[in-house]
Amino acid sequence: MIHKLKDRDSLILAGSVIGLGLILWLMALPLAALPDPIGPAATQFAEGALTTIQLTLWACFFGIVLGVLTALGKRSHLPPLRWIADLYVWIIRGTPLLLQILFFFLALPAIAPQLQLSEFWTAVIALSLNVGAYNAEVIRAGINAVPNGQVEAARSLGLSALYTFWDIVLPQAVRISLPPLANNMVALLKDSSLAYAIGVVELSMVSSRVQAESFQPVPVFITVAAIYLLLTTTFTQFAAALERKLAVGKR
């Protein structure tokens, strides 16, 4: 029974990854068959969706790394590390994401010109820092929820603090944090639309452009909404399957 469930979840996991690839690769084909104004702009939509996913996956990766580091900082015995982590989360959660993106694109290069990056990587950095702050709270809660007996057992076997964290605490904390983390990732996918403010040609930017050329907001925005829904649904399916798969042994 358990094995069957596990296999089905592995299938969904593989399926959602392959599915996402196929969606991004082949999306232009069905879109091209649609009437004006969608058909002629099919490749633009497909490329916009690809950029949206690239933004999301990069920010997702850096955001989780940042989240873990910040969660550790918040739990550190060293006060300066705690202060830095707290300050970071305080600033990011207390200011709008749009402002953060504009800040990294316009204000930072004004302070230090060598920090001028492309629109895409500026957006990745701003999104990573943003989602990292939210992830930090989620991962911290997950780490706190790992029973102390697990740590004591590991330490009593002679495992170092590092191994104890890597082999015991982190895997269990991630399992606990997975549902809220998945939530953050879906929010991130949608928040990546704000990158259009600095000229990243992602999905929302494409919709705005096509709309401006065709003056047909209804079909354009419905199409883009459908594409977003398709992408977020793939994400949530992946997260749900991952959650079930990792839940083995934790009942």
């Binding site: 007996g149 697990q150 009593s156 002679g158 495992l159 082999d167 015991i168």
Partner: peptide, 29 residues
């Protein structure tokens, strides 16, 4: 700690690992 084994009242097996992985983790690490 390497020379002293401990058994707890509440077992404290690593809940995300199989029995075999529970036993092999510390000797390997």
């Amino acid at each position: 700690r390497t020379e002293v084994g401990m058994v707890f009242q509440s077992f404290n097996l690593f809940s995300h690992m199989t029995v075999l992985d529970n036993i092999t983790l510390a000797p390997r690490r």
